[in-house]
């Protein structure tokens, strides 16, 4: 083994990497928020939407679940370019991840909705609640509890998937690492440090979610 490790240039660049890590988190969190909203809508549409909307929702969910996330990013990158719509790398990653998150979460939400018995809806309605009150006050809180764990997993996936931003020219943690690595040729060292940063981010999310669950679902 005649390879000399050079860690110093990497450590000098650490503040930039941390900043890029925050950008990664930002995109992941925003894509989760968008994904949860879209996923809820998709799940509801798939269960009791009008025909054409139900087809669109089904198509969305199946496409998101059955093609690679990278394909979806390429689609938002090159594919929309075919229609003269050129998005910035940030938007490509954000929309691509949201599309993917929404598809996976919709399936989880559907499972959650099916797990809440019908009788509760009827009970809430007969207490005089409107349909939207029933959903917001009775159904969704219970569904959230059921899908909390899958949602945490999806958040982890969003962080991991955001690394694909590197391939569409987005300088989040991976893209930034790639940039510095190709400047200095210390590819292994840079990516090793980045791997550690990702690991720490993922662990923080998992621990945070566990602590939050303890508070949220106390009773």
């Amino acid at each position: 083994m005649d390879y000399n490790f050079h860690w110093r240039p990497v450590f000098r660049q650490l503040p930039d990497l941390f900043e890029a890590g925050l950008l990664t988190l930002e995109v992941a969190i925003l894509s989760m928020i968008l994904g949860i909203m879209l996923g809820l809508i998709l799940a509801l549409l798939r269960m009791n939407g009008p025909r054409p909307l139900r087809w669109i929702a089904n198509f969305w969910v199946e496409l998101a679940r059955n093609t690679p996330a990278l394909f979806q990013l390429f689609f938002f990158g090159f594919g929309l370019g075919a229609f003269g719509l050129h998005l910035t790398p940030y938007l490509i990653v954000l929309l691509g991840l949201s599309f993917n998150n929404a598809g996976y979460l919709a399936e989880n939400f559907r499972g959650g909705f099916l797990a809440v018995p019908d009788t509760q809806i009827r009970a809430a309605r007969s207490l005089g609640m409107t349909a939207s009150q029933t959903y917001i006050r009775i159904i969704i809180p219970q569904v959230l509890r059921i899908v909390y764990h899958p949602m945490t997993n999806q958040m982890v996936w969003a962080v991991l998937m955001s690394s694909l931003g590197m391939l569409v020219g987005f300088r989040e943690l991976s893209g930034e690492t790639q940039f510095f690595a190709s400047k200095t040729y210390r590819i292994f060292e840079y990516f090793a440090v980045t791997a550690v940063i990702y690991y720490v981010i993922v662990k923080i999310i998992l621990i945070g979610s566990k602590l939050a669950a303890r508070r949220l679902f106390k009773y």
Binding site: M1, Y3, V156, V159, L160, M161, S163, L164, M166, L167, S174, T177, I187, F188, F191, A192, T194, A195, Y198, Y199, V202, K203
Partner: peptide, 19 residues
């Protein structure tokens, strides 16, 4: 817990180091 793409690049550059 580490993105696959990072693992790929890491190992692809690590294998030559160990010969």
């Amino acid at each position: 817990s580490v993105p696959l793409i990072i693992q790929l690049i890491l190992f692809y550059n690590f294998f030559p180091i160990i010969g």
